[in-house]
Amino acid sequence: MKKERLDLDDYRKFLKQYLLTHDETALYQAEQLSKLSVQHNVSPEEIIHVHIKALKELYPDLQQEVSDSLNFLLEAMISYGLALQEYQSLREKQSALESEISVAANMQKTLLQTKKPTITGLDIGAVSVPANQMNGDYYHFIEGSDGTLGIALADVIGKGVPAALAMSMIKYSMDSFPEQLRQPAQILESLNRVVEQNVDTSMFITMFYGSYNTKNHTFSFSSAGHEPGFFYFQETASFSEIKARGLVLGATSDARYNEEAMTIHDGDAIILLTDGVTECHLGDRFIERDEVLEVIKDYLHLPAQEAVEKVYKHFERLQDFHLRDDFTLIILKKET
């Protein structure tokens, strides 16, 4: 590390000024010099060295004991100088790590990118906001050549880098399934084996997979312990929970999943979310699922993308813009 020498002339000038006048501004200058010294990696013993020199120039007849004692002090400061050097090098390492993590986060973003499809008759909105740098929620749209739209929504339990890596694993596995094997239950069973064999025992993934048939407008779906979403039925203006039970991915190797189906009519909507939405905190209080529905209902008449963004903004404001968990909300509306 580069060490710069303290400007002896300045130091002498301020020291002299202070000794003669006891002027506060000189003390202030000393404080400024101290800040500059830290910035330029000037060690404490270097400052004492300059101090001794300046003092001797100002008082050539300086008492020998005073001069000796200052040399003694200089030796006593050496470890502090080393500690300062170590601190500087740790700071450099930390900023290198931070930039590496931000590169990784960007890479993950690119790798996991999903394009929101444009499908005639379907209005799709999706928002996913990480609580920290790396998002533990993941959604993915897969368009089949037969006109089906696959929607995957997953929440990796466990935070930070390991969770992000597990998510990439899910995405690659899903990409590797041939189209004819993309049935919800089948996908979850295969992914369960992948997760069970490959992640730490305390890590698991909740996932919802739905397949929307754009020809007959049926929505078939399976859930691996994922926070239930909702259907909205326009005819009765009511919501109903998407009932699908299944074990989280990664808990046992032989999990089996049920597949359910629902016919979607004009004006109906499918609402999928992660528990970051329902685990919103308001101080000590949780937001109940009914309250979440109320908010969604308020915005559901808007275009789907605008609706999910408005709902997100609503909860962000409630939590003073500080999310505790990743927040993902997807709305699919069948246009009338």
Partner: peptide, 15 residues
């Protein structure tokens, strides 16, 4: 309890 807690019980069950 949040999902991290569930993770601990899954670990325990496997054990």
């Amino acid at each position: 309890m949040d999902s991290t807690g569930l993770g601990v019980f899954i670990s325990a069950l496997k054990s």
